[in-house]
Design a protein around this nucleic acid. Structure first.
Lengths: 242, 242
DNA sequence: TCAAAGCAAGTGTGATCACATATCAAAATC
DNA sequence: GATTTTGATATGTGATCACACTTGCTTTGA
């Protein structure tokens, strides 16, 4: 076929056809497992099997085993000496360890973002906040998954502005690791009567709009510390009862 | 066989037989590739193929592809849109990004370690320093690999004392990412006449022995910043020449 | 009655095959 | 002679098979 003809063809369809994407099955499995982990769909200490997940995801074992291997290297899952793999169990030490790391790294990221996030970025996170308010307005239906997703978008929209290709994957890894814990904390919130989560987020946005890095960091620390503190108390009281 | 007979057998051999270990082929491949990456055996931008590595490591493709996948998720390698994988190229932004992250996280780790590392830990790192001096004494043979290994042991022996199961894997990931860059810097050192690396390490040990977290952090920052600064200058002057 | 042996189902690991795509050089076409 | 086409080779991906190990239950034997 002549070159001109090929380009003609491209021109005709370019506007109408969406790119079909080149995502592999493995990528989809990996993304799906990540989503499930961050969303807290798996419980701490839950054992996962390759064939079980392959059946659930309607694929063969191959993409699943590679995805599991990747999640194990980022400590989102844990390889037992039996060669079986499970969601890491919650311990007090792990909670404190995760919180400290998150404060350190996400605090740094938001400090950087405070000076680099333009009005356009601010507008986006403000829109996310409004969307969240709408979800919370119709309270009758506890759409926790939706809230988790919005919270994630809110935070990562900010972190993205820090412009670090090194820090952001680390934060993702930390969210992956704290996902199963956070889920427990969220359920605890639901039982205990929810505190105003939105308040912290509004403080964060205000600090970012003022380009006040220190205030943004402090508001963020308060925001991410709260569920961890909640979870910590819960675990301790449970430990006392036994 | 009766239980008593089994235990008799165990008693007889327990002292003589070493545990045989349960490492999989995939684990060995992964470790070997990590070693090569941290040691800078691969060059930035070098493309790696599954079958090529499998031949070089004398295994099949299966363990290699899973190891590559794991290294890609921790950003030690990079997946190109062609689906081929390469060692990430060096850019000025990436160097600054990596250095900032390393200062942040390794600085925190050594601060924690300063108060938690007992005299026993101090003795170990001092022994590593003496071993290093010996290697440097016979200077005629530039045993760079040995020095890289000793440097790694020195740093991670300290980080191990911080007691964080979250921070340490992150530091390993950062070393994996900066390995290929550092190798370039080390060669630059060799050409430019080496500055006294040992000085910084002695400062670190002194600060740790005095449990002075702030001084330890500052000495560490100086230590890890130096090769990055060197590499940075080298890249900039090369960029000017083109 | 109870512990030990044996068996069967389940699971992870590694090897191999089939297939789609990428790459690159030779050949063909203008 | 430059550009396109074509074909051979190389490479990543997914499926399937074979094997070893684990696990839990049943059967056996004292």
């Amino acid at each position: 076929m002549h070159r001109a003809a090929v380009e003609r063809t491209n021109d005709v369809f370019a506007a109408q056809l969406a790119p079909v994407g080149r995502e592999t099955v493995q990528d989809r499995v990996y993304s799906e497992l990540r989503r499930a982990l961050i969303g807290g769909l798996f419980e701490p200490s839950q054992v996962l099997t390759i064939r079980g997940l392959a059946d659930a995801l309607v694929t063969s074992t191959m993409p699943v085993r590679e995805a599991l291997g990747r999640l194990i290297t980022e400590k989102a899952l844990e390889a037992l000496p039996n060669r079986s793999v499970r969601v890491p169990p919650i311990t007090l030490e792990r909670i404190d360890d995760l919180l400290r790391a998150r404060i350190l790294i996400e605090g740094e990221a938001i400090s950087l973002a405070a000076t680099r996030m333009g009005p356009r970025g601010i507008a986006i996170v403000e829109a996310l906040l409004r969307e969240w308010d709408e979800v919370r307005a119709l309270k009758h239906k506890k759409d926790i998954d939706r809230e988790v997703t919005l919270n994630q978008s809110f935070h990562f929209e900010i972190y993205r502005a820090c412009g670090s290709a090194v820090l952001i994957p680390m934060i993702e890894s930390l969210w992956l690791q704290s996902g199963p814990c956070i889920r427990v904390a969220i359920y605890a919130f639901s039982e205990a009567g929810e505190v105003d989560t939105a308040h912290y987020h509004r403080s964060i946005v205000a600090a970012l709009a003022a380009q006040d890095a220190q205030a943004a960091r402090e508001a963020l620390v308060a925001d991410i510390s709260r569920p961890f503190a909640f979870l910590r108390d819960k675990l301790q009281s449970k430990a006392r009862m036994e």
